[in-house]
């Protein structure tokens, strides 16, 4: 176990904690927009986790998944806001 693998494990753990914190805001957010923000942060978090996981398992194809996610997370939040603007109260 060298320094780098230890760093990666620490990073993995802390990113998991971040995911948990974002999930708490996702559960209790007062408005739908707070939830969309939390969703944005979760997507960024998951990209980081995937990239680190691809190093830990030496499965380099997973980086493609992160690439696609960086495009689609944006589409998700945009479509949610669009839906909110269109919805009648």
């Amino acid at each position: 176990m060298n320094i780098f693998d230890t760093t990666l494990l620490i990073a993995f753990f802390v990113l998991g904690v971040c995911l948990l914190l974002a999930a708490i805001r996702f559960a209790m957010g007062p408005s739908l927009l707070d939830r969309i923000t939390a969703f944005d942060l979760i997507v960024a978090n998951v990209i980081g986790i995937i990239v680190i996981y691809s190093k830990l398992t030496r499965d380099f194809e997973l980086i493609d998944v992160a690439l696609i996610l960086s495009l689609f997370g944006f589409l998700g939040s945009i479509s949610f806001t669009y839906y909110m603007l269109r919805r009648n109260n």
Binding site: I10, A11, V14, L15, V17, C18, L21, A22, I24, R25, T37, A38, L41, A44, N45, G48
Partner: peptide
């Protein structure tokens, strides 16, 4: 990871 953690705490 530090900036990410700060952002998550900030979100809460």
């Amino acid at each position: 990871v530090f900036f990410m953690l700060v952002a998550s705490i900030g979100l809460l």
